[in-house]
Design a protein around this nucleic acid. Sequence first.
RNA 1: CGGGAUGUAGCGUAGCCCGGUAUCGCGCCACAUUUGGGAUGUGGAGGCCGCAGGUUCGAAUCCUGCCAUCCCGACCA
Length: 490
Amino acid sequence: MSKGIISKDEDYSQWFNDLVIKADLAEHSAVRGCMVIKPYGYSIWEKMQAALDQMFKDTGHSNAYFPLFIPKSFFSKEASHVDGFAKECAVVTHYRLKNDGNGNIIVDEDAKLEEELIVRPTSETIIWNTYRGWIQSYRDLPLLINQWANVVRWEMRTRLFLRTTEFLWQEGHTAHATAEEAIAETEQMLNVYADFAENWLALPVIKGRKTANERFAGALDTYCIEALMQDGKALQAGTSHFLGQNFAKAFDVKFANKEGKLDFVWATSWGVSTRLMGALVMAHSDDAGLVLPPKLAPTQVVIVPIFRSDEELAQISEYVTALTKELKAKNIRVKYDNRDTQRPGFKFAEYELKGIPLRVAIGGRDLANGTVELARRDTKTKETVQQAGLADVIDNLLVEIQANIYQKALNFRNENTREANSYEEFKKMLDDTPGFISAHWDGTPETEERIKQETKATIRCIPLDNKLEAGTCILSGKPSIQRVLFARAY
RNA sequence: CGGGAUGUAGCGUAGCCCGGUAUCGCGCCACAUUUGGGAUGUGGAGGCCGCAGGUUCGAAUCCUGCCAUCCCGACCA
């Protein structure tokens, strides 16, 4: 176990907190519920952004930016939307401070805003108000826009990365001429998220739809990807919404179709957030620290020299310079840690904590033998390998590590996905063997709500690849046409 | 917002019941010896004891108020 990190078996949530802090990803700020994302954490987020951004552009989307503030009146235009967000909005009421004469800075009551501004919890309203001016004809469609932004949701309880008051995300907002096209877009972006989760985060996800209860405020249908964390709790990793014509109607966004008739536009929105950082940590890491998938690791290979004298270091450095050049030619992100202020053992522990996928150690012994010591973070194994052809070995290993981390997470999820056929069995599983539970449900919000009240488990999704299967609801005993996926969730 | 707890050096803590300006460890700085898994020794620096009042000759300690954080609920990307 690493210094200052509690074992994840002993206290999972404390382990997560320790890890985020010790690995230097983020820290609590002076502002309630808001975190400072530190350089190392932010560099991982930037890797995620870069990959996602490219995927959005490859599917025809463009980035734009809309205001942080939204006039309060916009919110009341879509009834279920305001219901969903009203309780967690930060509101700007004044635009000036003043000195009260006693050395205190106070809000200047004379500077009250005519209409209060809401700090965006999500941007549907301001964006659809803007789209009204951008769309007149079917020729203006589809409109495919994404924005990278921060949003604020005044949550009661916050946790680093998983639920902070302010968080970073991207939100896509698209407009289409037909429902079919909007639904296809919703599904396409869900697939982009699943692709990203599996191929970059090395995180297997279940694609599915939310029940009416769990649907986004203002959506007709909410699709999601659900992942399983190492403590057996589910985490919603991304959502994609089919908004129908709700926002078009609320903001009067009409277009002339090919027949010259006016119709309301069909909408989607979709987003992933810095919560993915939490998913990344919780899915793969261990008691020694982070385990980063090579594709997202800011540094993929760290080289640690072991030396007794300046002369020895100079000899090692000469070899490392050549190796580094080779690795960089293969687009491998490599760091040479030749600090003489820390000893090798300290560096080993530090890079394990930070999740660097591969470590190369090289000392006098290796120089004599033409070898290096190569250590994998994911398996914690190390071996002595020949210097000749090392760059290729490393290149291949990074691919293997990415695949291994994914496979490990997939095995874990498979081992912790179970079928329950009675309510007793269901409750026992939740307590004894947490994970996904596939069970029959009668399709009513009442049953869903009662299960949630009694067990804290929610329906994570109705998987898209579900097979229809007649059965009886575990709670009500009423007929059911399919199993749905339950879990306790973050 | 309800229930519980905690605020003492960068971090973790002792002292509080029973008032007398603060203990220990990690980390930090200097030097020496070290360097293949978180080094050792010697010396050193670092504190408005969460904030504001009150009691007292004297408050980290007692009293009141406030603020913040954490844990458990309801809410949630």
